[in-house]
Write a protein that binds this DNA or RNA. Structure first.
Length: 493
RNA sequence: GGCGCCGUGGCCGAGUGGUUAGGCAGGGGCCUGCAAAGCCCCCUACUCCGGUUCGAAUCCGGACGGCGCCUCCA
């Protein structure tokens, strides 16, 4: 079985093969760190994490680069407005970004370069482009002349020759471009020392200024990964102009293919509507967590739709996702417990697990069809539960194989790993109090004083603690967290 | 205007020329002091109108509806 991925450039599903056997070089467009990333941003990042994990599942070593855009109009505007250096805005945002990254259980990329540390490399790129006659200078700025790049616009499906040059550029103030569609490589600084751009000025052969937005990705990708990447990913909105311009710049310098595959994630809708500040639906990860939603559920929901389709993020969906995650979690627990029981060889999980494994891989091989892959996972859950019921009180054979399969699935989805973290910890004081109350409730139950036991449960529920009596212990659920309180040994009568 | 996407059961969401997607919700059952959780079973849809076909939700055409991009939003 082999992996096939939809490539935006050729607009077709193509078999994936890395340039270097066994090793994938992948560049993922990271966040602009002017404000905390929202769930829409994380939809793309979570999907990229899935891609990365699946490549590893397929046996590749992955070298992933994700940039941090810490200089652009918005970071500059934020710093200027507050009258502070750029880093005073970007450093805390980066910190929050990494926090959220961790919350969702995303794997660390091998490199996380910051644009402001790569300005020199960007200048070298502009020089190389200039030597090839692809640029022109105007009033301290340098532009890329797209008219001299014959392939320009292919990624976005834009036919430049037929494009109107006028369009929205008619009233444009930037009349210093030869062609309004050209994009800036180096933006000359405003001579006014009080101008907004003053927080971000570097020296260059063309005078003081700052690099254009698209340039950083070309520079950092090529620095870490070489002139040709295996995979370049990003949100669909980056198709044009960002990725289109990246290709123009990079290939303009090297004359080589910049990336073999271009993969794009569609946008997220929230409650059926486009995310926007005015609708107030640009939720961040901590906002959702504060509302009592578990990170594992957020991760599951973000992952559960195909990356090339818009995903509708809803609060109902979040609750459904939490239930689905829990089902997997309980299933794995059940397998772990069954592993210790005596085996009943007349029923076997091995074949069921092998079938699920094959279905999972076939689905993921097909352009990361997560929905279908999850269908295979839940198929295993259902069939295995059935066999576990039948073998009870003994265990079917093949429990280890089923457990290994679930673990392999989760190395790709990474949902149970996040869920595991939610089952421990919590507000120490509340936990101590609740544990104490449960102890008292257990004594009442042992005495068959159920009125008292129910009163204590109500008391706990008043403070947001849900009590569940299980065979071996009492489970307390508070918010997204779960705590197990062992049942005191009852004295035999 | 240009380029492109989508319309599946109460909700979310795969898929496909003839065979059960899956999750959540809902119904029934097991378990339980009660409850919850968990487990099992059930619940058979594809916007509309034409066409192609032995057969279409799946292919073609049209209509209606929704959406994205077209210079800095993942």
């Amino acid at each position: 079985m082999s992996l096939r991925l939809y490539d935006s450039l050729t607009r077709r599903l193509r078999p994936f093969k890395s340039l270097e056997p066994g090793r994938v070089r992948m560049y993922t467009c990271g966040p602009t760190v002017y404000d905390r990333a929202h769930i829409g941003n994380f939809r793309a990042f979570t999907w990229e994490d899935l891609l990365r994990r699946y490549l590893r599942f397929k046996g590749y070593e992955v070298c992933q680069v994700m940039n941090l855009t810490d200089v652009d109009d918005r970071t500059i505007a934020a710093a200027s407005a507050r009258g502070v250096p750029l880093a005073d805005v970007t450093d805390p945002v980066i910190e929050m970004f990494l926090e959220d990254w961790e919350t969702l259980g995303l794997e660390e990329p091998e490199h996380r370069p910051r644009a402001t540390r790569f300005v020199e490399g960007m200048i070298r790129l502009i020089e190389a482009l200039s030597e090839r006659g692809l640029t022109y200078e105007s009033e301290g700025s340098v532009y890329f002349a797209i008219g001299r790049a014959p392939e320009y616009g292919r990624l976005a499906g834009i036919d430049c020759a037929g494009l109107e040059v006028a369009g929205r550029a008619a009233g444009d103030e930037e009349y210093d471009k030869d062609d309004p569609r050209d994009f800036v490589l180096w933006k000359g600084a405003d001579p006014d020392p009080d101008a907004d751009g003053a927080v971000a000025v570097w020296d260059s052969p063309w005078g003081p200024g700052r690099p254009g937005w698209h340039l950083e990705c070309s520079a950092m990708a090529m620095h870490h990964l070489g002139e040709t990447l295996d995979i370049h990913t990003g949100g669909i909105d980056n198709l044009f102009p960002h990725h289109t311009n990246e290709i123009a710049q990079s290939e303009g310098v090297t004359g080589k293919t910049f990336s073999e595959f271009w993969l794009h994630a569609e946008h997220l809708l929230v409650e059926g509507r486009k995310m926007s500040k005015s609708l107030g639906n640009c939720f961040t990860i901590p906002e959702l967590v504060e509302r009592g939603h578990a990170p594992s559920a957020i991760r599951y929901l973000l992952l559960s739709g195909h990356h090339r389709a818009q995903l509708n993020f809803t609060f109902d969906g979040l609750e459904a996702a939490a239930k689905a995650v829990n089902r997997l979690y309980e299933f794995r627990n059940r397998l772990r417990e069954a592993g210790e029981a005596e085996t009943d060889a007349s029923t076997g999980l091995g074949a069921v697990a092998a079938r699920a494994s094959a279905a999972f891989e076939a689905a993921m091989d097909d352009d990361l069809n997560v929905s279908e892959a999850l269908s295979a996972v839940f198929g295993l859950v259902r069939e295995a539960n059935h066999l576990l019921d039948r073998a009870h009180p003994r265990a079917p054979s093949g429990v280890d194989a089923a457990l290994a399969t679930i673990d392999a699935f989760d190395r790709v989805f990474g949902v149970l790993a996040v869920r595991d973290r939610e089952s421990s910890g919590g507000d120490d004081e509340l936990v101590a109090w609740a544990t104490d109350r449960v102890g008292e409730r257990e004594r009442a139950r042992a005495n068959r004083d159920f009125a008292r036991a129910d009163a204590i449960r109500a008391e706990l529920e008043a403070r947001g603690v849900i009590v569940e009596d299980l065979a071996e212990f009492t489970r307390l659920r508070m918010g997204g967290r779960t705590i197990q309180v062992p049942r005191p040994l009852r004295v035999a009568r």
